[in-house]
Amino acid sequence: MSRHHISTTINGDSAEFLCDTDESLLDCIRNELHMTGTKEGCGTGDCGACSVLLDGRLVCSCLVLGVEAAGKKIDTIEGMAQGDKLHPLQRNFLEHAALQCGICTPGFLIAARALLEKNPNPTETEVRFWLAGNLCRCTGYDKIVRAVMATAAELRG
């Protein structure tokens, strides 16, 4: 069985991997490229832990085939900080204690960044509904929502 040879761009760098037709982009990122910051919580699009940007659009990487990544741009948690400078969301998640176990954190960060790029001044309700597809079982969401709101305020200046 021959595998597909996929050329793509991840966090601005060109990347190549081999995959089967039925392999998800999530599995390719993790198992083929060994970038394990993107997590699997469910594999069915219900938890958001595998959130990435695909050509700038927020998606669950478990619901994208690896073969579909050919020629696309993918952004993952590993590309969120610029060098040693954290994205303000990353910093605010730390300062607001917006994580406990941390497994959902990469997905929340990617999703929250997509929100703030689209809507720099979201209400609490907008934040909550935008992030409804990101499950967290530890925090009750309070500190996560606060961290996102604080980042939005900071970025607006």
Binding site: G45, D46, G48, S51, L54, R57, L58, V59, C60, L63, V64, A111, A114, L115, W130, L131, A132, G133, N134
Partner: peptide, 9 residues
């Protein structure tokens, strides 16, 4: 239909 992520697709 689904989450923000699902809406992307």
């Amino acid at each position: 239909i689904g989450s923000t992520q699902v809406q992307g697709r």
